[in-house]
Design a protein around this nucleic acid. Structure first.
Lengths: 353, 353
DNA sequence: CTGTTAGCGCGTTCAA
DNA sequence: TTGAACGCGCTAACAG
């Protein structure tokens, strides 16, 4: 009796047509409408199993008429998995991460998956919370710009297909898509050294992440290859995390007086550029500058900025591909896709004065 | 029997500890581990209903030990709704939309909701597909930068709390958070007119969306208020959609020879700026420029760009707030939040030569 | 305070 | 070819 009472309002709303509010149409509603059983309706809609042509068309018509949309939760519950890929990036407002996410989303859409996007703000507590919700959703895969190896490994241990993007912290348990940071930094620094600069400073982040560490390493290797010392005092390592570092950078430049700068990421490049402008330094006459990660402004300021460019959306797309491939076949061997950066020579670099 | 067979591997995995792969731990597993019933376990974990202190701690300990994470699909099925808010924006790669999304996500997180982010690429088919998946997920709310009124209304008719951001197409069925575009455009244009410019061109998008239409209107109203004619030939309206319009803009500028420009959005501002650079025009000596929507580069190029700034993340945050409030109380009257823009005078505008 | 019962909406046997 | 029965994991009545 009680269930019947519930059915009444639904019946009414159906009569009013598609637009009516009320309990969403279920498979049983659909079956009743088409005078058949729920299981037949299920087979018809998903196109597997035997269904007579006549019943099928009747069902499809009814689905259209009633505006039937299958309940994803019910399907997920049944299938013990979902089509939701969790994505967690450091900072949605940073164009680099936004583009990675755009690439991921585009790729997932093509394959019928959806993206659940979360921004930890470089906070491992938020990172962990995100992982928990992905577990709750029974996400088959997660793509992450990791803060610590813990979360990736936790997820991987539970059978989630984890792909690390931009940096790789858990090489044993995850696939990864990273840039060849060492080569990129090597090229950038070598470029400056070949222009005759002998006081090339590095401004980067003080993490052990492959991204930052790789860029530091490339900077050093370029010096070694050129048989030049790399003065540790010429490296400014700022703590990882949000916030502006303009004051620190200004102090660093005033103290160390480099003739050239290699900057480890787009946020620091922004800060450094502003410091130089405020100091009245002239690029490249007074100082040369190479940034890592090409953003629109780097092509617009005067002079334009020489940069190590990375195919940002491509990073996201490849990560999504790896993720889906591993979901399809969890026994795949671990893969690390290393993408080549591209040094773009522009106006901010010139021979030393 | 068959279910028992399934339990064995799970048992084993449990013995191996948290990290083990296998069927996820269920409430029944938990209850068994703590020697109680599933319903008691449920009450203990969600902290409602009566549970003795001793049983509760036993349960919490077991949940911790087993790494229990409740199955969101099962909860959603039961509750007939989910905690997933659908968000669809035009273009994830455009920093404006990325920031709106960042604002939404931050706000939702605080309230225990999650963001499902989708980018239609100004394609109403993709917009509709996104709406369908939100319906399938039984999303209680959707936030959208609409392309057509259809989708918002479809969702609203099904009881989804829809909030339109940036532009408002369905005033009758949705809440909305928009900028006061007319006022912003009025201020920008008035600024140029007050500098003595009499050939102020407008470059914008040819949609009927409140955003674009409002900016066109503000441009006209400023002329009217100043008792000056606004020559229709001085308006360049490009079709809505992706792609560069540099060629069209170049032709337009060559043909109409304006002394000042008001540009309707950040993408067009980018294109126009590049055209001017390539033409060798000097800002503001040869031509003045005001853009709509402040992006980082506008503060970095030489000269800096006078701009109508909008609090982008705030737009997203307010939209999320409206959405959650309506979910909490669907009987709320419709609300349209109109946010004030801010004209920032910078270096790209000067008195007419 | 606790456990039993009965679905939420769907997909998948399996017998008819 | 179809439909009845069952269970995915969880919650909410209700009876104990």
């Amino acid at each position: 009796m009680r269930t019947k009472e519930r059915e009444h309002p639904a019946r009414q709303s159906r009569v009013r047509g598609v637009g009516a509010t009320g309990r969403p149409v279920t498979l049983s509603d659909l079956a009743r409408e088409a005078r058949t059983s729920p299981s037949t309706a299920s087979r018809a809609l998903r196109g597997q199993g035997y269904v007579s042509g006549e019943v099928r068309t009747r069902l499809l018509a009814a689905a259209e008429r009633l505006g039937y949309v299958p309940n994803a939760s019910a399907q997920n519950l049944k299938h013990r998995t979902s089509k939701i890929i969790g994505v967690v990036v450091s900072d949605l407002s940073n164009q680099f991460y936004a583009r990675v996410a755009a690439g991921i989303e585009a790729e997932l859409r093509c394959s019928g998956y959806q993206m659940m996007l979360v921004g930890d703000h470089n906070d491992d507590t938020e990172e962990l919370a995100a992982a928990r919700s992905f577990l709750a959703l029974r996400s088959p895969g997660v793509i992450i710009t990791p803060i610590r190896p813990t979360v990736s490994e936790l997820l991987a241990a539970r059978g989630v297909a984890v792909v690390e993007v931009d940096r790789q912290l858990s090489p044993r348990s995850c696939d990864a898509v990273v840039l060849d940071n060492v080569t990129g930094a090597f090229a950038a620094t070598s470029h400056l050294l070949s222009l005759g600069h002998r006081r090339v400073a590095f401004i980067g982040v003080e993490t052990s992440w492959t991204s930052d560490a790789g860029r530091r390493l490339g900077y050093q290797q370029a010096h070694e290859r050129a048989n030049l010392p790399s003065d540790p005092a010429l490296s400014l390592l700022v703590p990882q995390g949000p916030g502006s570092h303009e004051a620190v950078i200004a102090e660093f430049l005033a103290r160390t007086q480099p003739t050239a700068l290699f900057i480890g990421n787009n946020a620091l490049a922004d800060h450094t550029w502003r410091v130089l402008r405020d100091r009245g330094d002239r690029l490249p006459a007074d100082i040369s500058l190479v940034a890592f990660d090409d953003l629109p402004w780097m092509d617009m300021v005067t002079p334009t900025i020489t940069v190590v460019a990375q195919p940002t959306e491509e990073l996201g797309r490849r990560a999504a591909q790896l993720c889906l491939e591993r979901i399809a076949d969890p026994t795949l061997p671990r893969r690390v896709v290393e993408i080549a950066p591209n040094l773009l020579l522009r106006g901010s670099t010139a021979p030393v004065a």
